[in-house]
Amino acid sequence: MIRAALAFTLVPFAVLLAAPRPSIAANGFLAVALACPAGVEMPDFSSANASDVLVQPAGQFDCLKVGEVLATQLGLAPGERHKIVCEGQKS
């Protein structure tokens, strides 16, 4: 009986945690994940010479976490690296 009651209280809480929060994205930051080609050194690397770029709005305090999740979705070829950048949105 207690186990069933516990399951009913945890499931809605888990759904709330997984639900998208649009108010966080309104804080004016962009999480950017860049795929760095193998021959380019990291200091010379930018979005202009990236082989893949993924962008997602993010909040100030979760921008790097969102960038890490984006980086897992990059199509990295052997020898490529990734870079995560948090930028302020331009209005």
Rank of each mutant, 00 (worst) to 15 (best):
E68Y: 11
S91C: 08
A5Q: 13
I24H: 09
D44H: 12
Q56Y: 13
Q60D: 05
V11L: 14
F29L: 15
I2Q: 04
A71F: 09
P12K: 06
G28A: 11
I24Q: 14
A7S: 04
E41F: 10
V40N: 01
R81N: 03
C86E: 02
L70W: 10
C36I: 13
L6F: 13
A50G: 01
P12N: 00
V11P: 00
N27A: 13
A50W: 11
M42Y: 10
F13N: 03
L34E: 06
P22H: 10
V11S: 02
A35M: 08
F8E: 02
A58C: 13
P20W: 08
L34C: 05
Q73T: 08
G67N: 11
A48C: 07
E68V: 04
F61L: 04
G75W: 07
A77W: 06
V11F: 15
A48Q: 11
R21W: 08
T9Y: 09
A25I: 10
A58L: 09
L64K: 13
G39H: 12
S23P: 04
A14G: 10
S91P: 13
A14R: 09
S47Q: 13
V15D: 04
C63E: 06
E80D: 01
V15K: 06
V53C: 02
A33C: 05
K83D: 02
S91R: 14
G59D: 07
A26R: 15
T9N: 04
A50M: 07
F13L: 15
P37Y: 11
A4S: 08
S91E: 12
A50N: 03
C63M: 08
Q89C: 07
L54P: 00
V85N: 03
A5G: 13
A71R: 08
A48W: 10
R81I: 00
A26Q: 15
I84Y: 09
A31D: 06
G28L: 06
R3G: 05
V32A: 05
N49M: 02
L16P: 02
E41V: 04
A71D: 09
L64N: 09
A71N: 06
M42C: 02
L74M: 03
E87R: 12
K83C: 01
E80M: 08
P78L: 03
P43E: 04
I84P: 00
R81Y: 06
L70C: 01
M42K: 10
G75S: 11
G88Q: 15
H82L: 06
V15T: 05
S23N: 10
M1V: 12
F45D: 00
A58N: 11
Q56W: 10
D62H: 09
E68T: 05
E68L: 14
V40Q: 00
P37D: 01
